Structures are given as C-alpha cells and as structure tokens.
Simulated assay, not measured.
Amino acid sequence: MSTPAFQIHRLPQIDADQRHALADLLIDCVEGGASVSFMHPLAPERAHAFWHGVAEGVARGERALLVAEDALGIAGTVQLVLAQPENQPHRADLAKMLVHRRARRLGLGEALMRAAEALARDCGKTLLVLDTVDGSDAERLYRRLGWQSCGVIPGYALWPQGGLCATHVFYRALP
C-alpha cells in the first residue's frame, strides 16, 4: 500500500501563514467554479476576512478545522460547525469542504470526509448534515460514502460567475 501524498490534521488555531494559504485555497476553488458562498472574482481581502472569522470560531471551540497538506502546502480543508442550538447537541454541520484543483482526483476529498466523520465522533456528535451543488462531483462523493439525501432545493445559490444552481441536502448518522 502506498503512502498518501498528503497529511490531514486538525488546526487548534489558525496563524497568519495558514490563513494566507487557506485564502489562496478558497480563491482557487472559486476560480475553478465551485459554488462555496463567494462570487468570482474573489478578492484576497474578502477571502482573508472569511478565514479570520473561521479562526475566531475555531479559537472559541465553535468550529473544528481539518486541513490536508501536500508538498506544496494546504491542498484541502473541511470544517465541522460544532456549536448548535441547545436542543441539538448531538449534531454538527459539515461545511466548506475545499480541495485545490492541483489535488483533485487523488482521494483527498474522501480522506477529508472520513477524517471529519472520525473527528465528529470524537466530539460526541452522532448526526452530520451538509449541502452541496446538485449534480456535482462532491454530491457523487457523498453518496459513495453513504450519506443520505434529504432532497434538492432549486435555485438555492449562484454559481461564482452567475446563474442559479440547486443545492442537495444530505445527512449522515454516525455509528
């Protein structure tokens, strides 16, 4: 069995260099057409501001951030939104699973998802939810990994270059 070309780990805090690398990753994904809440072109200042907010949530323990690094640096990431309403302490939202275009089709997305599920279990979570663009590569990955479909919401968001896209909502009960 070969060793993966990337390492996944949890960031307990996000320093300036990591925030810069994460901003570059987000910009790459938006440039590549990913509908991840931002429009193209994504200004570096806006990407940095987003990751600054994530860093604050990580520092408060409201979010967990996993990153995958390859020889060139951060190549992927995924977040678990751990802070939920008081009647949902068993649940977390999986958010912003991003894989740099240089690292796609290498198993990194699947590895990030498996790591996020393991981390959620470690945090005492038994239910995960997420949404993704309907018909996307990510949707196919989630289905392959056993996530259950809740349905599709048409016209939910805009593609980075404009035009409406539908979102597909999924959940996964963790054993």
Rank of each mutant, 00 (worst) to 15 (best):
S2C: 08
A5M: 05
R10G: 01
R10C: 11
L11D: 00
L11G: 03
L11Q: 04
P12R: 13
P12Q: 10
D15T: 05
D15C: 05
A21K: 03
A23R: 00
D24L: 15
L26A: 04
C29T: 00
V30T: 10
G32D: 11
G33P: 03
A34I: 10
S35K: 01
S35I: 05
S35C: 08
S35D: 02
V36P: 11
V36D: 00
V36R: 02
V36E: 00
V36Y: 02
F38I: 02
M39H: 13
P41S: 01
L42R: 00
E45T: 06
E45W: 12
R46C: 12
A47S: 04
F50A: 06
G53F: 04
V54C: 06
G57P: 03
G57D: 11
A59Q: 02
A59W: 09
R60M: 12
G61C: 04
E62D: 06
R63D: 11
A64D: 05
L65M: 05
V67S: 00
V67K: 01
E69M: 03
D70S: 06
A71D: 10
A71T: 09
A71Q: 09
I74P: 08
I74A: 01
I74G: 07
T77I: 12
L80F: 09
V81G: 12
L82G: 04
A83Y: 12
Q84F: 07
P85A: 05
E86N: 15
E86S: 15
Q88P: 10
P89R: 09
P89K: 01
P89Q: 05
R91L: 12
D93E: 14
L94T: 08
L94R: 06
M97P: 09
M97Y: 10
L98E: 02
L98N: 09
L98A: 07
V99Y: 07
H100K: 10
L106P: 14
L106I: 15
E110Y: 13
M113I: 13
M113D: 14
A116Q: 04
A116M: 05
A118M: 10
A120M: 03
T126C: 14
L127S: 01
L127G: 09
L128E: 00
L128S: 03
L128W: 06
L130S: 04
D131A: 03
D131G: 06
T132M: 05
V133N: 09
D134G: 14
G135S: 04
G135A: 09
S136F: 10
S136A: 12
E139L: 02
R140I: 07
L141S: 02
R144K: 10
W147H: 07
C150M: 13
G151L: 04
V152M: 06
I153C: 11
G155Y: 09
Y156H: 10
Y156F: 11
Y156P: 13
L158R: 13
L158M: 12
L158S: 14
P160Y: 09
G162L: 09
G162W: 03
C165S: 07
C165D: 08
C165F: 15
T167C: 14
T167I: 03
T167W: 06
V169H: 12
Y171I: 08
A173M: 14
